[in-house]
Design a protein around this nucleic acid. Structure first.
Lengths: 232, 232
DNA sequence: GGGTCATGTTGCGCTCACTGAAAGCTGGTA
DNA sequence: TACCAGCTTTCAGTGAGCGCAACATGACCC
C-alpha cells in the first residue's frame, strides 16, 4: 500500500506522520468493510480488522471509538460543515429549504466517484448495502445519526432563534431530516445506486414539503430550477 | 413486594408463574430506572440492577437482551398492536392519517396514569428524562426505534400495496414517524410532562401534514372533538 | 400428600468490546 | 546527532452478553 495516492493533493502535502495516520484510518475502514461484507458484522472481531490492517487491536480504538464507527463514522469536520451550512445556507429562506439544499449537496459529495474520505469509488454504496443487510447495523446507524441530529437541532434552533426548551420544532425537524437521510440512503443501496442519492434526497424533501401525500412523486420527476432531472 | 397488585385484573388472574415473571420483569425495570436516574447509565452495571432486584445477573439477560432494553424495551406485543393498527385503522383514509391516529392513541396509553406495562404512574416521564439526559441513551433509543420503524414500514407497505424494493415511501414514512415519536417524547420530558404527549404527537403530525412550515402550531391549539382541522 | 414434567433460575466459563497506563518506536526539529 | 512529541504496542482489567449444565419451583395428575 502506498501512502501518497488517491488524494489530488490540493494541499501542500501533509507531513509524513499525517499521511501515515490517514492511510491507517483508511486501511482500517477498508478492511472493516471488506470483512463485514464477507462474513457479516457479527462474525468479524476488532482483532480481525486490526490484523487485516496490520495494526494492534488497541490501535483500532485509537482511531475509532467502536467497531461500528469504522463502518459509518462521520468525521467531526463533516458534521461541523453541516452545522455551518444549516446556519448560513440560503439566508432568508425557510430552514426546511436550507436543510434540503445542504443535505442534497452532502448526498452528492458522499456518493461522488471519489467516495467520502477519499476512499474508493462505490465505497459508500458497499457500506450501505452492508448496513441494509444487518438489522443490528441499521440500529447502529440510527444511533449514530442521533448524534448528528443533535447537532442539526442545535443549528436549526440557532438559525430560527427558537429556544429548544420551549419549541420542539428544531429538534423535530432535525429528527425528521435524519429519518429522511436514513431512509433514502437505505433505499438507494437497495436499488444498487441506480438513482443518484442526491436526487432521492431531493424528492424525499419535496414529499416532506408537500405534507407526505401518499401518491407523491418519489419517483423521478421533471423539475425546473436545480438538478437537471430525468424522467423515468 | 406483593405480586398481585397494580393490575385491575380484568383477566382470570394469570398463573402464579406468570405473575412472578411479570413481577420480576417490573422489578428489574424499576430498579434499572431508579439506579440509572441516580447514577447515570454508565455508572450502573447489570450486576447492580440484578442485585437490586434480587436476582442473578444471568437472570437479567433472561428478561432483557441488553442493559438498555430494561429501560425502553417495547414488548413485542405492543409492536404487533401498532402493526395491526397501521394495517386496519381508518380504512380508506390516507396512511398518514391512520398512522397519526394510531400513534396518538399509543402516546395516550403510554402516558396514562397506570404507565406502560402496568408500572407506576409517571414512570414513562422518569424514563424519558433519564434518556434525555444521556447522549448514549438517546442514541440507544434511536437504535431501538429503528426496529419498530422496520415493522411500521412493513405494515405501511402492505397497507399501501407498495413494494418496498421499488418505492421508498413506506420506509420513509416509517422513519419519519419514528423521528416524530422520538422528538416529541424527548420534548415532552423536557417540559416535565406539562403538555400531554398525545397532544404533542398530534400537533407534530399536523405540522408534518402541513409540510413542516416554520411557524406551525406546535404550541397548544384549540381543537374540536375529532381531528376536525384547524387553521394555523 | 407425592411424583413427574415443564419451566424458570443460577453458577460457570467463555468471548469480545473497550479502556487506562506504561513502555517502546518513529517522525519532526534544532 | 540528540531530543522531544506523538503514535503504537503490550498488558491488565472491567463489563456486556451468551451457551450450557445443574438446580429449584410451579403446574398437573393421581
Amino acid at each position: 500500500m502506498t501512502l501518497a495516492d488517491t488524494a489530488p493533493a490540493a494541499e501542500p502535502r501533509a507531513s509524513l506522520r499525517e499521511r501515515k495516520k490517514l492511510a491507517t484510518r483508511r486501511s482500517l475502514r477498508r478492511h472493516a468493510l471488506d470483512l463485514v461484507a464477507q462474513r457479516g458484522f457479527m462474525h468479524v472481531t476488532v482483532e480481525d480488522i486490526a490484523e487485516a490492517a496490520d495494526v494492534s487491536p488497541r490501535t483500532f480504538f485509537n482511531y475509532f471509538p467502536s467497531k461500528e464507527a469504522a463502518l459509518f463514522g462521520a468525521d467531526p469536520e463533516r458534521v461541523a460543515a453541516l452545522r455551518e451550512g444549516v446556519l448560513h445556507q440560503a439566508p432568508g429562506e425557510p430552514a426546511l429549504d436550507a436543510l434540503r439544499q445542504v443535505l442534497v449537496a452532502e448526498a452528492r459529495k458522499v456518493t461522488s466517484e471519489l467516495g467520502d474520505l477519499g476512499g474508493e469509488p462505490q465505497e459508500m454504496l458497499r457500506r450501505m448495502k452492508v448496513v441494509r443487510a444487518d438489522p443490528h447495523l441499521r440500529a447502529a446507524q440510527s444511533a449514530h445519526m442521533a448524534n448528528i441530529e443533535s447537532a442539526l437541532a442545535e443549528a436549526l434552533a440557532e438559525r430560527l432563534g427558537k429556544d429548544p426548551a420551549r419549541d420542539p420544532y428544531p429538534a423535530l425537524l432535525a429528527s425528521i431530516a435524519g429519518a429522511v437521510i436514513r431512509a433514502t440512503t437505505v433505499f438507494w443501496a437497495s436499488t444498487g445506486g441506480a438513482e443518484p442519492l442526491d436526487q432521492l434526497t431531493d424528492r424525499a424533501f419535496q414529499a416532506l414539503a408537500d405534507g407526505m401525500p401518499e401518491h407523491c412523486s418519489l419517483r423521478p420527476v421533471i423539475r425546473t430550477a436545480a438538478p437537471g432531472k430525468d424522467e423515468e
